[in-house]
Simulated assay, not measured.
Amino acid sequence: MKTTLLAAAFALTATSGLAQTTVRIATEGAYPPFNFINDAGNVDGFEIELMNDVCARAELTCTWVTTDWDGIIPNLQSGNYDAIAAGMSITPERKAVIDFSDAYYPPTDSAYAAMDGEADIEGGVVAAQVNTIQSGYVAETGATLVEYATPDEAVAAVRNGEADAVFADSDYLKPVVDESNGEFVWVGEPVELGEGIGLGLRQSDTDLRDTFSTAIQTMKADGTLNDLLVKWFGDDTNTF
């Protein structure tokens, strides 16, 4: 019954008020497994597979735009694309300037990783990607924050001795730690930040927001979204 009701609501939303049929979706292409560029040079990852399904359910033609993280919200507001699917956490600060769809990724932990299990994450130097909830969190601790354009550069800063630790989404850092042969270890305690991850949209695009949200709700109801979460993040990941 839940799936049937959502499907009916989705059909109503999809046919009422939404003028556009082609939607440009921005992603960073540098935040695996959420989004990345594969060996064929195409965007790939959890968010790409997710949005391909969402757009099919919404009967929309979606195209992908890759852009740097640091300017991703200003470029949305300038009309260079219509939505953001780039591992963007829903926060009160962001909701003041853009709108969000329903979350397609539940709230999960951020974590510290370092090359030394005794790394000082409270008073030392901690690397994070610029303009993220993780960099905002570090800035309010006693640590010295150093920001980098990409999460890979933040990890490299630890390897290069520019930072004592890196702070990022635990799902991003997990393969860094697991595949480092002991080079990287977890440090300190995990920290839950944000309200989950959703599509970022202009505040004026309420019809598009509702169309995407309803499609995401149908994926939650039929189990497709949880299947994707487990596929890309493993059996231990948080699901809906």
Rank of each mutant, 00 (worst) to 15 (best):
S213Q: 03
L201D: 02
E162M: 07
D222L: 09
E183V: 11
G188V: 00
R209Q: 14
D227V: 02
D205S: 09
G198D: 05
G117M: 10
S204R: 09
D169I: 08
D164Q: 13
T132L: 10
G142E: 15
E140F: 10
S180E: 04
T218I: 11
F184V: 01
I121F: 14
E195G: 03
G188W: 07
D227F: 01
A127S: 15
T211H: 09
E192S: 12
T132K: 10
V166T: 06
S204N: 11
Y172G: 05
I133V: 14
Q203E: 10
L145A: 04
V126F: 02
T141P: 14
D205N: 05
N160L: 09
T211S: 07
D120H: 11
E153D: 15
T211G: 02
G194F: 07
I197L: 12
F167M: 11
D222A: 11
S204V: 06
P151E: 06
L199S: 01
Y137F: 15
Y172T: 08
A221I: 03
L193I: 13
P175Q: 05
A154M: 04
T224I: 07
I121L: 12
V176F: 12
V130E: 05
A128M: 12
G194N: 07
L145D: 04
T214N: 10
V187C: 06
Q134W: 01
K220R: 12
F233N: 00
W232E: 10
Y148M: 13
D235L: 03
F233R: 01
A154F: 12
A143P: 15
Q129D: 13
V158I: 05
T214F: 09
I133Q: 01
E122T: 05
I121G: 04
Y148N: 04
G194S: 06
Y172H: 06
Q129P: 11
L229E: 01
D171W: 02
V166I: 11
V185F: 03
W232T: 06
T144A: 07
N160E: 15
L199W: 00
D222T: 09
A215Y: 02
D222W: 11
T224Q: 12
V130I: 13
A119H: 06
V187E: 08
Q134Y: 04
K220Q: 12
Q203Y: 00
G234K: 02
A139V: 02
K220D: 01
V177T: 14
I197Y: 08
V155A: 00
P190Q: 00
A119Q: 05
V146Y: 10
E179P: 10
I133H: 02
S204I: 09
F212H: 03
D235N: 13
T150G: 07
N131S: 13
V146R: 03
Q217S: 11
T224V: 08
V138H: 08
V125N: 09
D222Q: 13
V125S: 10
R159L: 04
V176L: 08
L201A: 13
S180I: 00
K220V: 07
D178P: 08
D210A: 15
L145I: 07
G196W: 04
G117W: 09
I121K: 04
E153Y: 14
D227Y: 03
G188E: 08
G188N: 05
